[in-house]
Amino acid sequence: MSLRQQLRGTGVALITPFNSDGSIDYDAFEKVIDHVINGGVEYVVALGTTGETPTLHKEEKIALANFTYDKVAGRVPVVVGIGGNNTAELVEELKSFPLDKAVAVLSASPYYSKPSQEGLFQHYKALAGVSPKPILLYNVPGRTGRNLNAATTIRLAKEVKNIAGIKEASGDMAQCMEILRDKPADFLVVSGDDALTLPQVACGMEGVISVAANSFPRLFTDMVRNCLKGDFKAAKELNDRLIQGYEFLFAENNPAGVKAAMAELKLIGNYLRLPVVPVSAGLQQKIKEYVKNLK
């Protein structure tokens, strides 16, 4: 099965549950893995930025990756997030990180440094040259401060052998359509915006790597499946029920919003690592009522 076939549909960027003392709550993490797989997701992404990876130590990342492989146990494919703004350090990490059981690496583009498009190209070319698994680009300019534009994405797709796809979260529908028009046939394009997934699949994307699927996997995966089979009437009915949820999850911070929802579902404790803090009391109450009433 090709990577495009394996990663068609809904992937979920797994949160990292913590205990009140800040340590990783592995019992809750196992519950989350079972919750999303039983909810129908096609694959999971461990160590994405939704997992608060900037606050995780190297040893914790390795332990989380291995725990994910063990608990997923082949039920769905696993993608591992390895990204950052120090290219040389990432090159070394890719050489040694446990990736045997992963199908791909999702790599967020460099943050803060704001490299040129040529800098972004050379960064990803360097990672692809050493990665033992295919690289999925991750464009999220709202967080990184620099857009990976359509021309650079297509150049990477056509010129760098080990670049297999992109999680596109620019929110720019014109840019998304340009990528979909010009990409190679075997290049995977998935959404990185829960709230835009329906129209983006309508434009030709093959799914999404989702935050909301942590908390509402069944509704969300059903919505995406309806999109992929072209039943947009059924997809819209499900998406209409989720729109307010998207708003609440991202109103103050991700993953603070989705962790608040998952705490209401009794899956995790509502703990985060600084500088991220739990959502405000007012938003928590709105999330509580939304979760309670979501059918």
Rank of each mutant, 00 (worst) to 15 (best):
M1C: 10
Q5N: 13
L14D: 03
P17G: 07
D21M: 01
S23A: 15
A28N: 06
E30F: 01
I37M: 01
I37A: 02
G39T: 15
G39D: 08
G40L: 10
V44P: 03
A46F: 07
T50P: 14
P54H: 13
H57G: 14
E60Q: 15
I62W: 03
L64V: 00
A73Y: 00
G74L: 13
G74A: 12
P77I: 08
V78M: 05
V79Q: 04
I82M: 12
I82D: 14
G83V: 01
L90R: 03
E92C: 04
L94M: 13
P98G: 10
L99W: 06
S107V: 11
S109E: 06
P110M: 10
Y112F: 15
Q117V: 08
E118D: 09
Q122D: 11
Q122L: 14
Y124H: 11
A126M: 05
G129C: 13
G129F: 14
V130I: 12
V130S: 04
S131Q: 07
L136H: 02
L136I: 06
P141S: 09
R143M: 12
G145F: 00
G145V: 00
A150Y: 01
T152S: 12
T152Y: 01
T152V: 12
A157Y: 06
E159A: 10
V160N: 08
K161F: 13
K161D: 14
I163N: 09
A164D: 07
I166R: 05
S170I: 06
S170C: 06
G171F: 06
G171H: 00
M173P: 07
Q175H: 12
L180Q: 04
D182P: 05
P184M: 09
A185L: 07
V189F: 03
V190W: 01
S191I: 05
D193H: 15
D194F: 00
P199M: 03
V201K: 06
V201A: 08
A202E: 11
G204S: 01
M205C: 15
V208G: 04
S210H: 08
S210R: 04
V211K: 00
N214K: 02
R218G: 09
M223A: 07
R225A: 09
N226Q: 13
C227F: 10
L228E: 03
K229T: 15
G230V: 00
G230F: 04
F232D: 02
K233F: 09
A234W: 05
L238Y: 02
L242K: 11
L242A: 09
Q244N: 12
G245A: 09
G245P: 06
E247P: 01
F248R: 08
F250S: 08
E252A: 07
A256N: 02
G257P: 02
G257L: 01
V258L: 08
V258M: 07
V258S: 09
K266M: 15
K266V: 11
Y271D: 04
L272H: 07
P275Q: 06
V276Q: 08
V279L: 06
V279P: 04
S280A: 09
S280D: 15
G282M: 04
G282N: 14
L283M: 11
Q284V: 02
Q284M: 07
K286Y: 05
K286H: 03
K286P: 03
N293Y: 07
L294H: 09
